[in-house]
Design a protein around this nucleic acid. Structure first.
Lengths: 290, 290
DNA sequence: CCAAAAGTGTTCGCCGTACACCCATGA
DNA sequence: TCATGGGTGTACGGCGAACACTTTTGG
């Protein structure tokens, strides 16, 4: 073969030339940042108002296209970074958040998904713990970021309905259908009416399905402070499992967490913090068993 | 704003111009095709020799770089297709296989992963059922494809060892370490010594971890013909779960599959095929319960 | 004193564990 | 008739389901 004479450098140059003949996509790393609703409360405030919900970070678009629509943060990756690094960088640049635990959600690559150009998006979900410091910058005068609360999500029988609130005001509702794949988890099938920019509605729905597919009993810890009561744990667990535990079975569930052979919780013996103020017996504080 | 005067078409043109100033990666869709080892046997042959193992499809590289090394099939995606479509197309082009069930494995994007250029690979695993027709073309004179058998994989305590055979000949061994993420599954941490092209060693190891994380009881059906004996099922199950069922507990496992409230198997009542020839009582035939 | 909510005690039954045993066959 | 391997019987125990009950507080 004639090629044998070439140096590696030459080969690389030739190869790159051949690549440049083809159209290349632009590739982004997008992040769905998720945190518990009481992240910005201190411990005392939280004790007063421990209702749990998930919050998702959105960017309000100030530019064409989809001006005024909500979108998820993200941006083009650079030649010196992996998509994970790009995702972490974008999250930091756009929302001053430090990526804690990036979990892949999927690659969105339908040629028509962005009217502007051929853009492929790698999507990750970044799970933010309750005890992290949050400081989403108000944002430039162009786009701004905001945490929207996903209240009482409904996912059942192939249909989902996700309502996102800014405080008490409904920002948008995401409804559609999903399919339980035999193996490999559930996937979004169809979004009824996308209120978000680009295909971000599908992305958000898929992200939530992905979150629900994680190991719930462990995931709960990410949304709780270090020390918590059993009621706190159950509150989060119920949210993440569509209230899978009926009222009557909560006692068994408590035992399951603490009394079985390999309990995942243990009592904080040193302190028996008095959690009064709400007219009932004081609750024990638990922490994750290592 | 001045932009308000622009038509969408103009805006798109402007946007694309701005994009073209940045370096873009080349994006591939790669597929790890997996099938049961007895795919090319007929029913009778299979009854004689029902030992199960997974086979992975590899391409022998005939060109620089990594000439002579095994690699997984894949190629650049086109502007008119999604990465999933690209993966299916490449699998068909390179191995005449029809993608059955594409499950995402991950995105490989370390800038140094391909010495030739900035190439990002989206990897899927394609699970091929036992009853599919297989016809991997011998291949062009350049590259050729071959199914290699993963015999007695070992995955335990953060270490893995995967030996791939061509018939009885060991082709390569993949060893390294993995990490059990708290949430989101196990990930490959380090490959001891990569015998494959590019980072395909890491990809293969990660793919196998991904397969093991699927719902095993359902996954087993993908590697069995429609009708099978309980021993067949258990054979596959043991392979996929590292022989998790001890010898003594196999009777209970049988019952678990057939006698509990929601059994996943049912007897093929119509036929009680005589599975003699091996010196013991005939076995019942089962099929997946719908 | 009562309502509210945390936490405990107790019973029931499924099903996973363990192991003994039975059955049909080929050599 | 024996080894082989498929299939069944049975007893035990953990733990999830269900629900009654006790405890501590605020009003």
């Amino acid at each position: 073969m004639r090629e044998e004479k070439l140096s590696d450098k030459d080969r690389i140059a030739l190869y790159r030339q051949s690549l440049d003949k083809y159209k290349k996509p632009s590739v982004t790393a997008d992040v769905v940042a998720v945190r518990p609703s009481y992240s910005e409360l201190n411990d005392a405030q939280w004790r007063e108002n421990p209702e749990f919900a998930l919050q998702f970070l959105f960017i309000k678009r100030a530019q064409w296209p989809h001006k005024g629509a909500w979108a998820i943060p993200g941006g083009f990756i650079q030649p010196n970074e992996s998509v994970e690094e790009g995702a972490a960088r974008e999250l930091h640049e756009e929302a001053q958040l430090v990526a804690n635990r990036l979990i892949p959600v999927g690659v969105y690559s339908k040629p028509t998904r962005d009217m502007r150009a051929w853009i492929i998006s790698n999507v990750f979900v970044s799970i933010h713990r309750c005890d992290e410091l949050f400081s989403v910058k108000a944002g430039s005068d162009a786009d701004y970021a905001k945490w929207l609360t996903l209240k009482s999500p409904i996912i059942a029988n192939g249909q989902f309905s996700l309502s996102f609130y800014d405080g008490d005001r409904l920002e948008f509702k995401l409804t559609g259908s999903y399919k339980d794949q035999d193996i490999g988890g559930a996937t979004v099938e169809k979004i009824d009416k996308n209120p978000l920019a680009f295909d971000h509605g599908e992305i958000i729905a898929q992200t939530f399905l992905r979150i629900l597919a994680l190991d719930t009993k462990k995931l709960v810890f990410y949304f709780l402070p270090e020390k918590f009561t059993l009621s706190n744990y159950i509150d989060v667990y119920q949210y993440l499992t569509q209230n899978s535990i009926s009222f009557a079975n909560i006692p068994s569930f408590r035992r399951q967490l603490t009394m079985t052979k390999n309990p995942i919780l243990e009592v904080c013996k040193d302190e028996w913090e008095d959690l009064c103020g709400r007219g009932h017996a004081p609750a024990k504080l638990y922490k994750r068993k290592v």
